[in-house]
Design a protein around this nucleic acid. Structure first.
Lengths: 326, 326
DNA sequence: ACCGCTAATACTCAGATTGAGTATAATGGA
DNA sequence: TCCATTATACTCAATCTGAGTATTAGCGGT
């Protein structure tokens, strides 16, 4: 029986007796030419992320996660980072009084794209689940419905809170302005959850929004976890060279740019992007060329691993993030 | 009995039967004129952070944390954010085979400084526990010993790994260069842990480093948690206006600067700091003045809360972080 | 009333960084 | 050979940054 090891205050209620269950879940991201992919286990009511319970054989949480992933997918995880621990009492319907399911979510980046047959896991476009996050081809169509829906939601409440709601929505979705903050993924998701726009937020029988909703179903709170992961990753690539965890050994600068664009969901200014990569010294030439470019052949470069031991904070600050022509 | 709710692969070992115990712990930070303070429960072998077990009455993790803190300290938490979940099997000596203690750590910022009598909790200078992190009065004395110790540690291993170790240490502590990265708190701690410099990393009987070690004892992995919190906070104040969670209703620009300097552990260029705060529109005048400045009276300002609803990413980018005269 | 001390506030300026171009160089295919 | 296409090089103004200098307004003492 576990008991408090350092608590000296008087706990009013049950110090013992909460049956805990911890699940390790992983948002595994890979890059494709069309954008970021996430590994899911396709399921009948909804897709889910690879996950498994924490076991006594796991010396560390990360080791446990790696064990589950290799058991379920044949994939070797490179970069792994802890994302967030979810533990609301209602995150799983009726887990039973006195028991609680925690979910410790991790973000992992992989190079390979071999979907494992062993488990039936499959790579899915990240934006299948978060279609309003992709601005690479201009304003996402899903935003029309969302914008109207949020306006109605704001109008539905008294003036005071209505104005506040309006502001929150405007901030998260850049309404009214011409600025889109790529990192606010979680803020946007939570707004859509709060308003009942995404399906997992609605009770049985509650009507869907009057506009086409394109949120491919995900189980439990997995869409929230995915949103957390995407937001974190979009932030991280700006100050740490994690993007290279997704790239093959050698690649062209355009490959790199496409990968960054896919993740951050916006188009970048090509010349400035190269300038940034070059001046930061993030890559070095391999001496080889990629000829199937459709135009002049491109130098193949590789990540300069030494930068990890030179300056502590180096990433792609995304200068020249430009709005796709409104 | 909890059981996996979404697992379809064959778990090799015990899917059930791991007795879990989750502790909610809090790094509660407040500002004083001399620098940041952390709330601790002074203890005999070592100080510990306020903490308590997750209970079934806690609807959310954050609610549970707030409940424990108000029970133990009379403090009202304002800003709260989840930090990290620690769960290595060996983080507590021998919790028993088949049982595991998780610690879900939170960072909280408070304005008030009333240490609660109810629990005997006390405010302590953050740098009591991490003395090598404070560069406000020039290079911290503790670094002399650390530098020598790390050099010896690197030399102790074969050339190959030795060089790597040297680089890692140089990167984290800015050895050789004149740059100190305030955010690398956790990297530095982990290096000191790995080398056995901090006392909690040493087995019984293992000799302490040959230099004076000034790491005031902290229980369990609480120093690691504190390091995580400080690093996160140092990063966050640069792009989010969280610093104002530590400030009183009205304050002078110098008060604000001192608070930022205390947290980030470096001195800033005064004129540029003000320029930044002003151009970002982070504060507004109250019309009143602070006269006990020792010189010309200073305007009292307050945080412009509206900025939270204007631009999404606003903080004190710490331009003009200057090295204290080496 | 004046002096000197201290800190607040205002203004300056060169160098670096950014955002947004234009210009030129190699390919493959019609 | 011309053309479409992409890579790569170079330019330039606007802005941002780092580091100053200059001026202002209190206080305490004489």
């Amino acid at each position: 029986m576990p008991s408090s090891q350092s608590d000296r205050s008087s706990a009013a209620t049950d110090v013992e007796g909460l049956a805990l269950f911890a699940e390790l879940s992983a948002v595994i991201i890979a890059a494709s030419v069309d954008g970021p992919l996430v590994l899911v286990r396709p399921g009948v009511p909804a897709d889910t992320l690879p996950a498994g319970p924490l076991q006594s054989g796991h010396r560390t949480l990360e080791a446990g996660l790696r064990a589950w992933v290799s058991q379920q997918t044949d994939l070797h995880l490179g970069y792994v980072e802890q994302l967030y621990t979810f533990g609301d009492a209602d995150r799983i319907d009726m887990p039973g009084r006195g028991s609680r399911a925690l979910s410790i979510a991790y973000l992992a980046l992989v190079r390979a794209l071999r979907a494992s047959a062993r488990s039936g896991a499959r790579w899915q476009d990240v934006y299948t689940y978060l279609p309003w996050e992709d601005w690479r081809d201009g304003r996402p169509a899903a935003l029309d419905g969302i914008e109207a829906y949020l306006k109605a939601w704001a109008a539905k409440s008294p003036a005071e809170t209505g104005a506040l709601r309006e502001k929150r929505a405007a901030l998260a979705f850049g309404l009214g302005t011409d600025s889109w903050s790529d990192e606010l993924v979680l803020d946007r998701y939570e707004l859509l959850y709060e308003t009942g726009f995404v399906r997992e937020a609605r009770q049985d029988g509650e009507p869907p929004p009057p506009c086409p909703v394109v949120d491919h179903p995900m189980g439990l709170d997995h869409r929230r976890i995915l949103a957390t992961a995407l937001g974190r990753l979009r932030g991280k690539i700006k100050y740490r060279p994690v993007i290279f965890e997704l790239m093959p050994e050698s690649f062209t600068l355009l490959d790199l740019q496409r990968t960054v664009e896919g993740l951050s969901g916006v188009k970048l200014h090509k010349q400035n992007f190269r300038r940034l990569v070059e001046t930061q010294g993030l890559v070095e030439e391999t001496g080889e060329f990629q000829t199937e470019t459709g135009g002049r052949p491109a130098r193949l470069v590789r990540f300069r691993r030494e930068v990890l031991l030179e300056r502590p904070s180096l990433g792609l600050r995304m200068s020249g993030a430009r709005r796709p022509s409104l």
